[in-house]
């Protein structure tokens, strides 16, 4: 079957007469939807200022206010310890934006319009995920600049630093699929935040983001070490050459492996759930 993704003149194709199928259509439509999501962001200055100022606020509050009383095991600057944690945390909170945006599309009937059109069904979810990735990249850029200004830096070369950024973005992709699933489950944009934030906050507290797990009571430390966020944080600390590499536990020793395995596992679970939910959305 010939899969022409696009046609030129609406005048000649006055009547809709062709179903659009195939991989080229899926790619083309996925990219169009990605652009749509980025255009939405560009037209929402209030969202940009909220989502980009929050992580900076975290760096300043934790780096300077609480940081003065914090201890990094093995020594080292607390802000150097903190920044990889803020990277991961920002990716986690991005889930809220993903869920809210999807719930908005569902509740306002935009998804219905898309579903009644001859477009690739995958495009809405793929476009959301790709846009989240781009957005994660933007947030990382802002945070890296902010980190450099407060005395954080990478010590093991640009290559490993970029690998660390890659791990952070992988986490963002996993968070994106969880956010998509939640957004489809709760098709009211206002309730998404009230579900995600109580879920996300303990996850950040019970992780190695702010406090090294070996400083926590035994069982709490174990939970914190196995927390998916901690995997990414520990692995990126290692790759950036930042302090706080942690204890000799299995989880701490295999941080790189876990930083890949956790997000991949989360995508493997939540992407199919989200897709199934999307297909049954309006039945």
């Amino acid at each position: 079957m010939s899969a022409h993704a696009t046609t030129d003149a609406p005048g000649e194709a006055r009547w809709r007469g062709r179903a659009r199928r195939g991989p080229r259509v899926a790619v083309s439509d996925g990219l169009v939807m990605t652009r749509r999501n980025m255009a939405q962001l560009a037209r929402s200055p209030e969202e940009i200022s909220l989502y980009f100022s929050l992580p900076i606020l975290f760096v300043l509050v934790f780096g300077y206010v609480f940081g003065s009383g914090m201890r990094v095991p093995g020594g080292g600057n607390y802000r150097e310890f903190l920044l990889p944690g803020v990277f991961a945390m920002t990716m986690l909170y991005g889930m809220g934006a993903t869920g809210t945006s999807l719930a908005f599309d569902v509740s306002r009937g935009v998804v219905d319009r898309f579903r009644s059109m001859p477009m690739a069904r995958s495009a809405l979810l793929v476009g959301r995920c790709l846009a989240d990735l781009l957005r994660g990249l933007l947030e990382m850029t802002v945070l890296v600049v902010c980190g450099l200004l407060v005395g954080w830096e990478w010590h093991r070369g640009v290559g490993l630093a970029l690998a660390a950024v890659g791990l952070v973005l992988l986490l963002r992709v996993a968070m994106s699929w969880i956010g998509i699933y939640i957004g489809l489950l709760l098709p009211n944009p206002d309730t998404v935040g009230t579900v995600i934030f109580p879920l996300a906050f303990p996850l950040t507290a019970l992780s190695s983001i702010f406090v090294a797990p070996e400083l926590m009571p035994g069982w709490l430390g174990t939970i914190a070490e196995w927390n998916p966020l901690s995997a990414t944080v520990a692995a990126t600390r290692e790759l950036f050459g930042n302090p706080g590499l942690g204890s000799d536990s299995w989880a701490a020793d295999h941080a790189l492996l876990l930083a890949v395995a956790w997000p991949v596992a989360m995508v493997a679970v939540f992407a199919p759930l989200a897709i199934r939910r999307f297909q049954r959305l309006t039945d």
Binding site: T7, A9, P10, R20, V25, V32, P118
Partner: peptide, 15 residues
């Protein structure tokens, strides 16, 4: 956006 998703090329969609 909707024009692109109906399969129009960018220029045709804008027109």
């Amino acid at each position: 956006l909707f024009g692109r998703l109906f399969g129009l090329r960018p220029r045709a969609a804008r027109r």
